[in-house]
Amino acid sequence: MQYLYGSGEAAALSIQAWQALWTYLRNEIGYRRDKSGVRSVALAPGSTLDNPRFEACGKRPMAVVLDIDETVLLNLGYERDEAMRGAGGYDAARWSRWEATGADKVAAVPGAAEALAAARREGFTVIFNSNRSVATAAQTAAALDHAGLGPADLFDTLWLRGEGEPGGKDARRAKIAQRYCIVAMAGDQLGDFSDLFNAPDAAVAARRNSVGGTLLAPLWGAGWFMLPNPVYGTGLKGGVDEIFPPESHWADPQEKK
């Protein structure tokens, strides 16, 4: 929390990511005279991590699809409450109460508001795809407005998790992709780009290698943009032996004597 919400380093990383997204939209997409040949950066149905497929935009309007929490919106009120409580684990009911009542206790991720405003000025539709509940859609839209990130309209530019729906985002991404050509995505978790990254049986090393060791690697910084989040999420897993393989082990020779 100190790093993400309090450090200049985290703010610089966030600004860097949003600057990169805007530069990509302007240079790689905006300057093309014939945009019908631009390809979506959302994985097409039937794709795998080893065999990704992407569809051409055709005549669909272009859109940028974004996660909300810790991608464009900093949940300052909730995280302060977490910090004051100490370790206790995620409480879904308390998070629901935060969604319903914390709309004015948030701030924009550094760089996000400026990048989204620039994208909208150039004709890109900004769409939010979040695992927040559809039951608190009005409050989520209000939080985005409070942070200067809106507007967001439910089932148009705001897509949220329905009652009883699983936490994955691919189904909602597919619905967005039917209406828009998704030319850029941003998130703070790999699931913000594809649910395929979060296979339940994926080992820590395999999940890490899937980012840089597949045909998807060139998308980072060129259609896919990751924001820092060392506070929570699917990236925080793995024991010491999973993260540090045997060949990396070292012991101070002075302490061996």
Rank of each mutant, 00 (worst) to 15 (best):
R161S: 01
L219V: 03
Q139T: 00
V231D: 09
G88N: 14
N131R: 08
L158F: 00
R53E: 06
Y5F: 14
G221E: 07
N131D: 07
G86R: 12
L43Y: 06
A217L: 08
I68W: 00
D170R: 10
G223P: 09
V183M: 10
W159T: 03
G238R: 14
I68C: 00
A108T: 03
M226F: 13
Y24M: 10
N198R: 14
A147N: 02
D153K: 15
G8Y: 15
A119S: 06
M1L: 15
A205N: 09
W224A: 03
A222K: 15
Y90Q: 11
N131W: 13
R161C: 01
M84V: 11
L215S: 05
E114S: 02
V231N: 05
A63W: 02
G58H: 11
S96C: 08
P200Y: 09
A251V: 08
A113G: 07
T157V: 00
D188Q: 10
E82D: 13
D145S: 14
T23G: 11
R80L: 09
G212L: 12
A206L: 09
V41N: 07
D34T: 06
Q16G: 11
L73F: 02
D104F: 15
T136Q: 00
L196P: 05
L43W: 05
V126W: 02
Y5R: 06
S96F: 09
Y232E: 11
A108C: 09
D81G: 11
F193V: 01
E70I: 00
L4H: 01
A92I: 04
W220C: 01
G77F: 05
L49G: 01
A108L: 05
